[in-house]
Structures are given as C-alpha cells and as structure tokens.
Design a protein around this nucleic acid. Structure first.
Lengths: 231, 231
DNA sequence: AATAATAAGTGTATTTTTTACATTTGTAAA
DNA sequence: TTTACAAATGTAAAAAATACACTTATTATT
C-alpha cells in the first residue's frame, strides 16, 4: 500500500489450481489437468484456472474454481505463490496466484471432468503445459512434499478409512522414495493420531489388512499440548 | 487463467515488505517500520509498501520498494503470500503480496530512513500495525524460522565477517530459544561452509574471537553433490 | 481335508544424531 | 603478577533412525 496509485496499474488476478489425487488402484499420485477448448493454446493441456472477481477473496476464487471442475467443496487448499512474468499470458497482462488442492480422487464429479475434457496424469507423465504452468506444478510438488512431512494432510488424499499399506504407498509417491514397512508402521503408530478399526480391507490380500481412520480431534488436542507432527 | 474476463475485476497489486535486520550492538532481531505521513491511518506504524506497476514483475516491485526505503539493492527477499480480504485497505480494493527481506542493518541509508520516519523495532516490541500488517509480520517470522533452518540465509543479516558468537546469537533470536555453545559450534563446523579467518574481533573480549566468512562457492559446490543444509 | 499361495503383521540390534555438561586458554587492565 | 572475562574445546549418555526376516491369517486349489 501507499498513497499514490494509478488506475492503469490495475491487473486481472488469475488463480491456477494444481489438483492432486491419489489413484487407489494404481497406487499413484496424479494431477488433474484440463484440455483447453478455447484460444490461445487451444487443445493444449493446462491447469484449471479462472479469474478472481472484484468482490471475492483470493481463497474464495480458488475454492470456486476448484468446485467448478470437481464439484467438491471443503477441500484442502494451500496458496503456493504469485507468478507475474510480464508475458506469462499472451492475451492479457495478468498475474496468477497458484493454489494446490488435495482431493479424494473417488469423490470428484465425472460429468464435470468430461465437460472440461479433463483427465488425470501420473506425476511423472505430466505433458508439457501452457504458460508457466509447468513451473507451478514443479513448485507444488515440492511444497506438498514439505507440507505432508510436517502436517497430517496426506489423509486428504485418502478415503476416510484406509490401510497402513495405502498410507505408506501414498507417502512413497509423494516423497518419491521407498520406505521400510516396519519402520513406517512404527513411526505412524508412535504419532498416535490414527484410530485402528475392527474392520479389514480384503481387496489386496486373503488375510485382509486393518483399516484406520485419522482422528482429527485427537490430533488437535495433542497439538494444543505442544505435539508436533513429523514424518 | 480462463477465456472469460472482465475489466471490472482488475485490481491494484500492493507489495508490503517485512524488513528484518540484526542489531549487532543489542544482539536483537529487528524490523524496519515506517510511520505513515499520509491518510488513511496517518501517524500509524506500517510496513513499507507500494504498488506494482503494470510493466513490472512482482519481484521487481518488491525490490524497488525495498530500495526506496533502504537504498539497498541485491537484497535477499522471499515472497510470503497474498493477502486479499475485501476490506483490507479501506480506500481502494487492493490485494497485497507480502515479501520479507534480510538486510545487514549497518548498510542501510540513514537519510532515507529519516525521510520516511522509519525506525527499527525489536520483534517483541513491534507496535500495532495498520491493516493486516500484523498478520504479515507474524507469518514472516514463522517463514524466516523455517527458511533459516534449511537454507544458509542467516548470513544475509550479518556483516561479511562475523564471529561464531554473533552467528549463534542470531540463530537464537530467530528461533527464539537458547542454544548450547559447544553443540552449536560443532554443528556449524560440521556443515563445512564457513571459512575461518586469521583475524579476530576484539570488541567483546580481551582474548578476541575468530572471524568467519560464509563461503558461498563452497556451499554451491557441496549442494551440487547432494549436500543439504540443516541447522 | 490338506496344501499352496499371498500379503499382513511384527521386534531387535546397530548406527547415527542429538543432547548435556565443565575446564582451560589468551589477553588486557589493574 | 594478578585479576577478570569471554573464547575455545571434547566426551559420555540418550534418543532417534535405520537395517533387516520370519510368522500368521486367509482363501483358492487340489
């Protein structure tokens, strides 16, 4: 802020969303991208985006834009950063605020996805994207890696009930490294923020594996007593 | 970005700077604040700010605004986040991108500081600030705490040559906790990115303490070989 | 009814990292 | 020469991270 301002310096604020999902079948971290049906860069792959309205907060714009494509509300989103290269959008001088979102891939609206010719891409197979979207994705992955290691947001990518194996695979995908099963279980159990259910998932083995739930309330209480999440 | 846009949704982009300095005499982390000589909120304390110009990147605006107050260029700055509450600025709908800067407190231009009625405040004694600037400061401190623990940016706040004691005091101020002298020295030496000079600083003791320099080149080389800074 | 196949579940020993802690040294002023 | 004062230094104990392999539960097959 300052006292001198100039209407000619006003610009459009875009919001671009890096939407992460965890494919349970293929045990892969994926990104939701749209195929542009408009110019410029028609038919190219891109992040889902839109413009902030004058009567909206930037978070609201991000939420709205995510909802437009996925039909979802109440989604975990985090602001990444502002991108403002002068020629980043060839049509109009805009700056873009990038957000990443973590969704449970099973919850999204298939119909909307079709409308936007959107589809899910494995992280390592993301195509070349328009504008500066490649950089946004790159930064989002780094931020996600950091954030999941210091806050229990990984659960946002899983169904409410999940197995230890699913959780481990998820972390392996995000961190892009293999983890030892015993050490992982030990670490997660030591955190003491999961609830082990009397229910088993039999999809992946005859023996079946126990299902767990993230206990948000317990986590909050522990935080109030100085607990710090760390994986 | 999207194909539909509306000129009425254009807004001014403010940049606000959280300027950190480390006072060598008092061994305290401080913030540079200005006293507004214009309305609204005249005579209140505030962060240094300004508006992004249409032909500038946001980083350029941040650099320019920092230079206006301090006379400095080539300063370490990091983008924090966007603040966009509808009524954050009562005069005009603006969104603000907050940046924090780390400067060597001895280098700044005293004259400019006077012009802006700016002065340095100990972190714990920062007065109530205008708009959402308190929140910005709060977030900046948290980010600084994290960033200094994973990147060697603390040196930006020190003179080129500094003692181990100064470095420790700096970290203590940033992290807001006391550290053990032997363990700290051991840790820093183990990083092997400092150069010990054949020169002593005799200001704080008769014996004098050795001066060190951050070896940027060595750090870069180590990074290329997979080194990860961690304090 | 026995067997085979498969992923789930579990514990310990070793290494590495972090923490706690006290004495000696060098210099200038008295 | 003595005093005063911060600088410099090492080791043992505790905690955390890592490496590693066998048993169990279940179902499908014979």
């Amino acid at each position: 802020m300052s006292h001198k301002y100039n209407n000619e310096d006003k610009v459009l604020i875009a919001v671009d969303c890096i939407i992460f999902g965890f494919d349970q079948e293929e045990e892969e971290l994926k990104l939701l991208l749209i195929k542009r049906d408009f110019h410029p860069e028609k038919d190219k792959w891109s992040l889902m985006g839109g413009f902030m309205k004058i009567d909206e907060k930037i978070e609201e714009a991000a939420t709205r834009i995510l909802h437009t494509l996925t039909g979802l509300t109440q989604v975990y989103m985090e602001q990444l950063e502002v991108f403002s290269e002068l020629d980043r959008d060839p049509v109009e001088r805009t700056i873009s605020v990038a957000y990443y979102a973590l969704i449970n891939i099973e919850d999204h609206d298939e119909e909307l996805i079709k409308q936007y010719s959107a589809s899910w891409f494995e992280i390592s197979k993301v195509p070349k994207l328009i504008f500066d979207h490649d950089i946004m994705v790159d930064h989002a992955i780094k931020r996600l890696r950091y954030r999941t290691s210091v806050q229990p947001i990984g659960f946002e990518l899983l169904p409410e009930k999940f197995t230890m194996r699913q959780l481990q695979k998820l972390y392996e995908e995000i961190l892009n490294e293999r983890l030892d099963k015993r050490n992982f279980t030990k670490k997660i159990n030591a955190l003491d923020i999961l609830e082990k259910l009397d229910e088993k998932d039999k999809n992946s083995s005859r023996k079946g594996s126990y299902l767990y739930k993230f206990n948000q309330k317990k986590y909050r209480t522990k935080c109030e007593n100085g607990f710090i999440f760390k994986v």
